[in-house]
Design a protein around this nucleic acid. Structure first.
Lengths: 171, 171
DNA sequence: GGATATATGTGCATTATACACGGATATCAC
DNA sequence: GTGATATCCGTGTATAATGCACATATATCC
């Protein structure tokens, strides 16, 4: 239905690869979304709703540790797109706050796998609830099929993008 | 087709709003994507491909000035989710580099509307080409319908999210 | 066992960022 | 018109975040 009137320029095609002015509607939408996600206000807003205080930068790390279970510094750094040294300090801060705990890896003693503590999990849960209410509000007018389709395609895009980073983006 | 086997928990529903452990597949995919987009390597990679050098933080600003035409500091700050003072300094830097030019607004003398210079436009174009090749590579296996559907839904999500920010997120 | 690769942490300089404030302009009430 | 209020922008300042270079510990390969 919609693709009939959408004029996305998929610039791998030969017709427009030489045209300097190119539209990429997908990229524009993605950047708009990133702008919203990156702004500090929603996090702080959610934190206030959850009744807790936490540095803005520690926020995504705590959530990801809660999500990806035991995880090391390097893998975490790749997930959030920061240098491992930065993440190392931030995880240490989370540990000193009692929100994550670290233990040596079973099979690899080099990694110090981080997991959330009960206190950290409680915070992750509280944040997750507030965030879910936000999503429910944003998606109030969406049909179940639309939400499922978007989730499916976005998941695939994220996976494909990660593959690309590994193959070409990293070096 | 896909929504049959997708278990997205849309936590506005009454069944699971009281469950502390909630999955939100859409959010997870989005965060993964943000992680990829936020990492510095792709930008630097694109910049090297384009043969130019530019501070990582100035990058999204230049692109957005090129995209959103004449735009003031405050509006730009809202787009990228940073404080207006931060954006003010960065736009000044872009101006000193000769990549953007500023003029007083026609109807409002308070705003100093920024537009890209020819040099800035050339850089935006070069970056756009490299980026489009990246998208083409990432989406190589996608059908046209899938790409159009994702673009459509993502655009709508971005718009709905911005409405939400205006209504509830900003205060 | 030695060479190489990876995971983590730290010293350090640089940069990015936010907050608070002030000046300039616009808008509104009257 | 005049004053009150709001908005846009820039700057001073302190703080936090970040990346790089380097060191250490462990793993892996031959």
């Amino acid at each position: 239905m919609y693709n009939a009137h959408i004029s996305a320029d998929w610039t791998g095609s030969k017709e427009n690869v030489h045209n300097a002015r190119m539209k990429n509607d997908l990229h524009e939408a993605l950047m708009d979304l990133v702008g919203v996600v990156n702004r500090p206000q929603p996090d702080q807003h959610l934190l206030k709703l959850a009744g807790v205080s936490l540095d803005r930068a520690l926020f995504p790390l705590l959530v990801r540790v809660g999500l990806r279970g035991p995880i090391g510094v390097v893998e975490l750094a790749e997930l959030v797109g920061r240098d491992h040294s930065t993440v190392s300090r931030q995880v240490a801060k989370l540990e000193s706050l009692g929100l994550v705990r670290r233990r040596a890896g079973d099979t690899d003693a080099r990694v110090r796998e981080a997991v959330v503590t009960p206190a950290g999990q409680a915070m992750v849960d509280a944040i997750g609830q507030a965030r879910s209410r936000m999503y429910a509000s944003v998606l109030a007018h969406w049909t179940e099929e639309e939400k499922a389709t978007l989730t499916h395609l976005l998941r695939r895009l994220a996976d494909d993008a990660k593959v690309w980073v590994k193959e070409e983006g990293g070096g």
